[in-house]
Structure formats: structure tokens, C-alpha cells
Design a protein around this nucleic acid. Structure first.
Lengths: 341, 341
DNA sequence: CTGAAAGCGCTTACAG
DNA sequence: CTGAAAGCGCTTACAG
């Protein structure tokens, strides 16, 4: 069992004494100030290494008035366990952390769900230079809270905000809808129905529908929307939407679904009903989550470029107001897996 | 476009002046010191709210000598994108963040992969009170680096370390192997083969094998091991292991696989070869990743209790040396989905 | 090129 | 119960 007594902290004064220079020289030498002789710098670095010295980040940041940290808030559904969070957000979180690191920023990550424990005042409390908010749209209290935060604050950026006035970054949903629908049309499907919503707080859902509708119209086909019920969990939405569609008795031979989680439920319901994918029904989702790799058949999907998404979120939260949100659309691509002929 | 000029920070001196008290009284009032009259406290709180004051966390922590922060390092494979990280680690990350938050700690998260950019000196640089390391065992450079960090440091805890001398927390792998194998035996399978490894850096793999071997012996059956090749990616390991097993020509009617990612590859290879699951071959994995929900059939698996895992990691990194690692085994349970009769 | 000194915004002995 | 003062460990004008 290792020793755990708190070691007295080695400070820049200790290094200064050891190297025979002043404390300010130590600070400058270690900060690569050009005012310092290379000989002096080498001596300081040597002493620092011998003493095991590291600059105290808190003190440096306090003095500099910056934090070198970005806060990343993942909004969850109340009561949701970590293993139940939509894996899409985990991928996005990973990309954001990587992009922040690339810009020399740390990431302070929190998962927030319950209305009475929301916190976003990272700038006021000197904990971060900006806040990136991602996560489920289903938590109204959280979004309203962060909208209010955003009004006071300057550096908050949102992924997929339900509020258009906030500074959001989103997938190029319209383009995704276009790509997916064209893929289905090219494969020969004609009775293509969209499973989604046009009036939900999920702005991206409407955008995906509009891309779909455009591609249908371009091909001389009539767009058809099967609404999902926003309250149920995603997979149940997929089950129910397919059931409702079948109950209507109108023929369909392909589904473009507003997101992969719903598409997984839809695929399962199709299987239950003996409708084979992709022969009797083509199927394309949206988000590119890993779970779609292992379904039978693997789920064809539209995926945003996660690296670009992370980079865009970080760039915008750090950017000057004049440069902000010049780019707020993340490009998407088709993951042509197996649920389309 | 909101105004982004840096507002001058409101300090405790501003609040003091506004409330007509000293700065130290402001500090005490806001820290809920019992020395302060409720009347005074109320006045201070009111002033603080009117001025929009928040305690500067950096300054408070600098003075107090603590950070209130835990660093969480996710070790990745070099070159791995965020969307490719084993989702198991994302779930664990979520649980750790939740557990830390429950203990009043923030979480500074980093994804580390490349050997020249490893960083773990969060305590020395005053950025965190402890470090939790999780992630793939496949990155030797990273594990060696963090082993060296752990020697100097006191507060580093590892999930699934390949080195026994480190302070590790793990799933109760032996128990998981027992449960899985018994489940297969009870279902009537007899030629049960383990897909895994006994000599890999993955200590948990050996433990899972030992649980399996015990259950087999208890039932009067002979344990059989099909080694996976450590170098390939996980799913390929599953494909190859099944192929190798078939090539041997020895009968098998069930597989207990060392982890879900390998099991997914194995299931796919069984499908390719026309061996139906669960009728001709039962299949159980380990980790309980979500991707197993949507396979055909859904993958039966052993899952650790993520809440306990997060709590245990946090408790141990914060704990006194005397209390540390009294508990280092996370309980597991069977996810009885569909790949066993 | 280097040093002495101020100050970032707090908490907490020390006095009263 | 409250205040004046020191000090956490840095960076950075200001001097020389």
C-alpha cells in the first residue's frame, strides 16, 4: 500500500532557490518566455525535474484570468442510467473532448438530468471558459435552464437545441434526408414513408423530413409522414409507428426513419410482422449508431462526421463573436450497410 | 448575437460593499459558516444575487489546497475514433461521472491514446485530487505510463489493469464465468467451449475462464479453451476463433465468450456457417453492451453493475489508505436475452 | 536578461 | 459574531 500522506507542494520558489535564480525567472523559463537565456532555462528545467516540480494550474489560471477548460454538459433523461444514454451522445462527447484537447483545453464533463440539480454557471464560477451542451431533447427543464444560462452568458454552444435563438450546431439534416431518400429511390422503392415528426421540439426531425420530401418531390413521388409519439421511448416509437402504418392499410415498401433508435424498434416490429428487410421493405435510419452494425440485416444509416462535429462545437464556443457560427452544419454521409436492396 | 465583451468579474469585495459588511463576512456567510447571524447571511445572499456573484472556484480551491475534481482518463487504441471506442467504457465513464458528482466532485475527462501525449500528473499540477484510469488494455504504452504515475502518486485507481500491483477495480469475473456456464449447462448444452485467453494481459479473461472451468468441473464436464488472437480487433477475434474451432472438427454446442465484442463476431461467423443460435449453439458473452440487444437472437451476456462500479472507483480514489480496496470486485448479473435456449 | 513587487479572488487563523 | 490581514502559487507589469 503506497504512502498517502500529503506531500508538501513543491513551488516555484523551491525551484528558484535550487537553481539559484529568482522565482519570476523560474516562471518565465518554464513558460518559454523569450526573455530568458537558454542557459538559464536549461538550469531551471533541470532543477524543476530534480524537485519534481509542476506549475500549479489553478494558481496560473487564477492569475491569468482564464481556465483553459471547457465544460461539456450531457443532458440526460431523468432517471436514466449511464448505460441507457443514447450512444450517439457518447460518440459526440468523445469527439468534443478530442477537439478540445487539440486546442489545448481540458474538458470538465457532467451528466445532468434532474431539474433541481442543473448547473451551467461554469464561467461565473471560474471553472471554464465556455460551455458545450449536448444530449437528449426530451428534458424540457434542462433546455429551459440552459436557455436562460445562455442569455446571461456569452460562451455557450448547443448541439441540436430545440430553440432556434440559441447558438446551435447540427447535422446537415436536410442533406441527410435527401441522401437517404435518393438511395431508396435508386434502389427501386416507390412507396417510401417517413417515420418522424414535423412539429416536435427536435428541430432536426423536421429538417430530415424536409430533405426526404424534397427528394420525393424531385422523383415525382408523394411524401408520406407517419408521426411517432414523442412521449414513448425511442424504440417503442418505432414499434408503434410501424403498427400504426400497417393498421392504416396503405402499402409501403420503404421507411426512412428520423433516427436510428426509432429505426431499431421499427426493424424489430417489421420482423415480428414477417415483413422482410430489405426485400419487402427498405429501411434507413439516422445517426449511425453502432448498434445498427449487428442487426439482421445491418441498419443502413446517415452519420454525421463526428470529428467535424467536435471541432465545430469547440471552435464556436471559443470563437470571436464575429466568427461564430459561420459554420453550424456538420456534413453527413451514407452508411450503406444492409437494410436497403 | 450576444455581447461578448469580458465583463469585469464580480468579487466578494463588491458583495461586501453592497451588503455593508466585510469581505470575510461575505465568504463565511456564503460558505454557511455557523459563526454568521442568519440576518447577516440573508443580507449577504441577497446582495450576492443582486450582483450576480458566484464564488470563484479556482481561488477558493487554491486557498483550500484541494481541487474538488477527479480526473478520469479513458485509454484508447491509437488512431481510434470516438465512435469506435468500446461502448462499455462509455457506460463506465458515465457511471464514474455520476458517482463523482454524488460525492461533490467534478470530473475532468480526457481520452488518451498516443504514446507521446500521455498525461496523468493531475495531482502535481493541482488539477485534480485523484485519477481514475479506465479503457482498453491493448495500449501497452499507456498502461506502462500510468503504472509509473501510480508509483509516484497516491490517488490513482484503475479499471481492469493488466498489472496486479496497481490499485484495480474489476468485475467479479470468476462469478460471471460461473453464472454463464451454469446457465448453459442448465439449458442442456454439454459441449461448451470457452472463447478467450488465459495468458493475455487482460487479467479478467483468465478469471472468466476460471469461473467457466469451475462450473464445468462441478458438472463433470471437461473445460475446453479456444484461444483468441490478441492482435486482431475484437470482432475479428470472434470470427477467427469460431473458424478455428470448426476447423478442428471437434463438436461443440455452446460458446461462453470472454467479451461481447468478440461474441458479436462469433455470432456472425456462426450465422455465416449456418449454425443456428441458440438451437445448434448456445452463446453467452460478457459486458452487457447495448449492441447485443439488437442482434438476432439478442445476445445473452453477463453485465457488471455499472452504478456500483462507478461508486467503487470513486470511493477508492478518494478513500483513506486503510479503507482502500476493501472492495474491489463489482457484482455481475446475467442478462438473459435470447442466445441461450 | 533578470529581480522585486503587486495582485488574481478567495479562506481562515488571529483579534476583538 | 465580525473585521483586518496573511497567504494559497502563480504571472506580469515595472525597473534596472
Amino acid at each position: 500500500m503506497p504512502d498517502r500522506r500529503p506531500r508538501p507542494r513543491v513551488t516555484s520558489f523551491d525551484v528558484a532557490e535550487h537553481a539559484g535564480v529568482s522565482q519570476s525567472t523560474v516562471s518565465r523559463a518554464l513558460a518559454n518566455s523569450s526573455a530568458i537565456t537558454e542557459a538559464t532555462r536549461a538550469r531551471v528545467i533541470k532543477s524543476a525535474e530534480e524537485l519534481g516540480y509542476m506549475v500549479d494550474t489553478r494558481a496560473a489560471q487564477l492569475r491569468q484570468g482564464r481556465t483553459g477548460t471547457l465544460a461539456v454538459v450531457v443532458i440526460c433523461r431523468p432517471g436514466e442510467a449511464a448505460s441507457e444514454i443514447n450512444p450517439f451522445y457518447f460518440s459526440l462527447l468523445g469527439s468534443v473532448c478530442a477537439a478540445a484537447s487539440g486546442q489545448g483545453y481540458q474538458t470538465l464533463v457532467s451528466f445532468q438530468a434532474s431539474a433541481d440539480q442543473l448547473f451551467g454557471k461554469y464561467e461565473e464560477s471560474g471553472q471554464a471558459d465556455g460551455v458545450i451542451v449536448i444530449g437528449t431533447t426530451a428534458n424540457d427543464a434542462a433546455w429551459n435552464y440552459f436557455r436562460s444560462i445562455s442569455a446571461d452568458n456569452r460562451s455557450v454552444v448547443f448541439w441540436g437545441s430545440p430553440f432556434d435563438e440559441l447558438e446551435w450546431i447540427r447535422s446537415d439534416n436536410y442533406e441527410g434526408g435527401l441522401i437517404a431518400t435518393r438511395r431508396l429511390i435508386e434502389a427501386g422503392y416507390r412507396n417510401i414513408v417517413h417515420l418522424g415528426a414535423v412539429d416536435s421540439p427536435q428541430r432536426q426531425f423536421r429538417e430530415r423530413y424536409e430533405g426526404y420530401a424534397r427528394a420525393m418531390a424531385d422523383a415525382g413521388l408523394v411524401p408520406r409522414l407517419q408521426e411517432v409519439d414523442y412521449d414513448a421511448d425511442r424504440e417503442t416509437q418505432g414499434h408503434n409507428a410501424v403498427s400504426a402504418l400497417v393498421a392504416k392499410g396503405e402499402a409501403f415498401d420503404a421507411l426512412f426513419v428520423a433516427c436510428d433508435s426509432i429505426a431499431l424498434g421499427a426493424m424489430e416490429e417489421l420482423r415480428i410482422r414477417g415483413i422482410s428487410v430489405p426485400d419487402q421493405c427498405g429501411l434507413i435510419g439516422f445517426d449511425g449508431i453502432r448498434e445498427g452494425i449487428h442487426t439482421s440485416p445491418p441498419l443502413t444509416s446517415i452519420e454525421p462526421d463526428f470529428d467535424v462535429a467536435g471541432a465545430m462545437l469547440v471552435a464556436n464556443v471559443l470563437g470571436e463573436s464575429s466568427h461564430r457560427l459561420a459554420e453550424r452544419r456538420v456534413p453527413v454521409r451514407l452508411l450503406d450497410r444492409g437494410s436497403v436492396r
